[in-house]
Amino acid sequence: MRIGELAARAGVSVRSLRYYEEQGLLTSTRSASGQRHYTEAHVERVTFLQRMYAAGLSSRTIAELLPCVDSPSETTSDAALERMAEERERLSAHIEELVRTRDALDVLMATNRAHRAGLSPTATV
């Protein structure tokens, strides 16, 4: 199948597929005229890549995890699990920072509300 059909079947843009190829996450064969051609297996591959992106993983991290998919073994499985654990820790730290930031904003909003409540109706312009 050609790139447009793969995009439609996988529910992604053609641009995304080209990006995946640039990042080494997806490969295609080329016709004599240079058109990309894909197989049924590529639909599953793109769906898998989308799940990885939805989990917050970067292209680089996904590339590090693909050996577990492409050449499954205990070694690649262990390495993938370790890498995903690292990513989970990174996300947890980011979530904690976002919670702290939200809490700081809540304090500012409470201060603003208290200040606003203290303004007399004639003081507003």
Rank of each mutant, 00 (worst) to 15 (best):
R2T: 01
I3Y: 10
I3G: 04
G4Y: 11
E5I: 10
L6W: 02
L6A: 06
A7M: 03
A7W: 05
A10H: 07
A10N: 03
V12H: 07
V12A: 08
S13D: 05
R15D: 09
S16A: 12
Y20M: 07
E21Y: 03
E22G: 03
G24C: 00
T27K: 06
S28I: 02
S28K: 00
R30Q: 11
R30P: 12
S31C: 02
G34L: 09
Q35L: 13
Q35M: 12
H37K: 10
H37A: 13
Y38A: 12
Y38M: 10
T39F: 14
T39I: 11
A41F: 08
A41K: 07
H42F: 01
V43T: 11
V43G: 06
F48S: 06
L49Q: 09
M52Q: 07
A54R: 12
A54T: 08
A55H: 10
G56Q: 00
G56K: 02
L57K: 06
S58F: 04
S58C: 00
R60P: 07
I62K: 01
A63F: 07
L65D: 03
L65C: 08
L65Y: 01
P67S: 05
P67V: 02
C68V: 05
V69G: 00
D70R: 07
S73I: 08
S73T: 11
T75R: 06
T75L: 05
D78W: 05
A79R: 06
L81H: 04
E82R: 08
E82H: 08
E82C: 04
R83Q: 06
M84L: 14
E87S: 13
R88T: 07
R90F: 04
L91V: 11
S92L: 05
S92Q: 01
A93F: 00
A93K: 02
I95D: 05
I95P: 02
E97A: 06
E97Y: 03
E97Q: 00
L98Y: 07
L98P: 02
L98D: 08
V99D: 08
T101R: 12
T101A: 13
T101G: 10
R102T: 11
D103T: 04
D103K: 00
L105S: 12
D106T: 08
V107Q: 14
L108T: 14
L108W: 09
A110D: 14
T111H: 11
N112P: 13
N112R: 15
N112Y: 15
R113C: 14
A114K: 07
R116H: 15
R116I: 15
A117Q: 15
G118H: 08
L119N: 01
L119I: 15
L119A: 09
P121K: 02
P121C: 09
A123Y: 06
T124F: 14
T124K: 04
T124C: 08
V125W: 12
